[in-house]
Every structure is written in C-alpha cells, then in structure tokens.
Design a protein around this nucleic acid. Structure first.
Lengths: 145, 145
DNA sequence: CCCAGATGTTTGATGTCATCAAGTAACTCG
DNA sequence: CGAGTTACTTGATGACATCAAACATCTGGG
C-alpha cells in the first residue's frame, strides 16, 4: 500500500513539518528574487500587482505600516519596475502599477520557482487532489489567528 | 470516502495554497514572539537552542552570515535569555546556550502557537496521517533547491 | 616543530525592512 | 462650512542582512 499514511502524527509534528516546508518555499522565493536583484519584499509587492493597487491597499496586503510601503515602492519605482499613478476618483490616493519590466521580472521569478519544483511531480493526480483538499480545509482556521 | 479530494489542482494552485498557509503560520509565530517582546528572528534562535550551539552552527541553521548572528545573540544575551560559553575543545568557538528564562519564553511562544491552532482539530486521525505522509514526501525535494 | 592556509568570531560600513509619531493634503458628513 | 477621518509622506530609531577586513585559533604538510 501506499505507505504514505504512517502512524498518527502529533499536532506538533504536523506543525513542524508545515513550518519546514513553508520556510523551504520562502527561501526559494527569496533566492529566485535575488537572482533578479530583488529583495523578497520587493518581489512580494510585484507579485500583488495584477492591476493598480493603492499604497494603502499594499500595506493591508503586506500587513505592515503604510509608511513602510512608501520606501519599498520608492525603490521599485527608482528601478522602473513600478509606477505611481494618481487615482482619478480620489486625489489623495496613488495607485501603484507594474511597468512592463516589472511584469517580466516577476514572471521570471515565478517560472524559476516552478522549475525548482519538480517537488510536486512526486505526487500523482489523486494525491495532489487529496493534499489540496486537506490544505484548503486547514487554511481558513490558520488565517483567523 | 472523504470527499476531501476535489478536482485535480494545478501545480500553481497547490504552491499558492502552501504559500498561504506558510505565511499564516509565520505571522502567528511572529505575533506570539512579539507578545514576549521578541522579534521573529530572536524567537527562531531560541527555538534552536535545545543544547549548546556554536555561533557558526546558528548561522548555518538560520542560513545567514555569521556576522549577523553576533548581533542577534548580543541582543538576546543583553536580555539574559541566552549565554555565550567558551567551547572546551576549541578556543575559537563560543557556544550559545539558552538560560532558564530563555527556555521559559520560547516554551510559552510554542504553547501560544498550539493554542491558536485548533486548526488541526478539523482533521481526524486518518486525515492527519495522510496529510503528514504527503507533506513528508514533498519535503525533501522542496529543501533541495 | 613550524608556518601557510583554513576556520570561528567580531567589528564597521551600508542598505532594506519594520515601527511609531507627526505633518500635509484631500475627502466626508452633519 | 468646519470637524473629523483617511491617504500618503517624512523623520527618527531599531533589527536584520550582506560584505570586507581584522583577529585569534586550529590544522596539515614539510
């Protein structure tokens, strides 16, 4: 049998395993970002920019102070990966938009992440589906805090 | 049986889900650490200190420059959560040991993490075992990088 | 035994991220 | 309109992170 299911793990073991995988993934992301001269935080911001996002919105997404976002976007803008546009509806807000260069860079970072992940190929379709289902059930209570 | 298995998710979806759970877990860890006046990094160091660990060893565990560890341990030592002891076998190395206070603090941080995690109670034993098995298989290739 | 090279730790310079407090401009609503 | 909220920025400060360089100590081959 698939000896996938071993004995019942403790909560702690499961949490530690999740943590280990989480940090491994984070390190890969950081490494991929670094290859393009980005800090992990900068890459994270770029990853959020599907469309225009106000500064405040970024602060919410990153769960950090708004004043922090100013600096991060400053540095991204200095490298032309991002642009600040005035919001037509509210003159207080500035919307952040990825430039073409910015979109390309983050796309490459994502590609490298996937490439590095033959990891998932060790699972067949049924297993992926099972894993996905279990994790999806875990997610909401993990995010509640 | 468990109708946990939905349709086959894409690799990307699965990776994003893992990432979401990873950051949720990280944020909880950071929050728990903060309640005891620790930065996430400081808490992470304390978590490694089951026994004496040389500075260099910490740098390896944290995957960072050795000079960085100096500062982190300086701050922990200033708060008496940690001590530097000379290594009897090699006079170059200094072993870092958690003080009693240090052990207590990190124990509480861990407790708060678990408490916050009724998350895992949504899984029955069989499901936990399955999840653990699948994640355990994923882990090695994720860490290869 | 002894010296050249490797290793462990620290210091100093620099840059990014994080917070908080305060300031300015613009919106909202009674 | 004016009081209060909201969006963004600036400035101060502290924790991480890296690199380069200094220093003491270990190690191995001659």
């Amino acid at each position: 049998m698939s000896e996938t299911a071993t004995h019942a793990p403790t909560k702690v073991q499961l949490l530690e395993l999740l943590a280990a995988i989480g940090t491994a993934q984070w390190r890969e992301f950081a490494a991929a970002a670094a290859q393009h001269g980005l800090t992990p935080t900068q890459a994270r911001v770029l990853a959020q920019l599907d469309g225009p996002v106000p500064m405040r919105g970024l602060a919410v997404l990153l769960v950090c102070d708004a004043s922090n976002v100013t600096g991060i976007v400053d540095r991204l803008e200095a490298r032309e990966l991002v642009r600040r546009e005035p919001d037509p509806a509210d003159r207080r807000v500035k919307n952040v938009v990825a430039t073409e260069a910015g979109r390309q860079v983050i796309r490459r970072v994502r590609e490298e992440m996937q490439a590095a992940h033959g990891a998932l190929d060790t699972l067949d379709e049924a297993e992926s589906a099972t894993l996905y289902g279990l994790l999806a059930r875990l997610r909401p209570s993990m995010e509640k805090g």
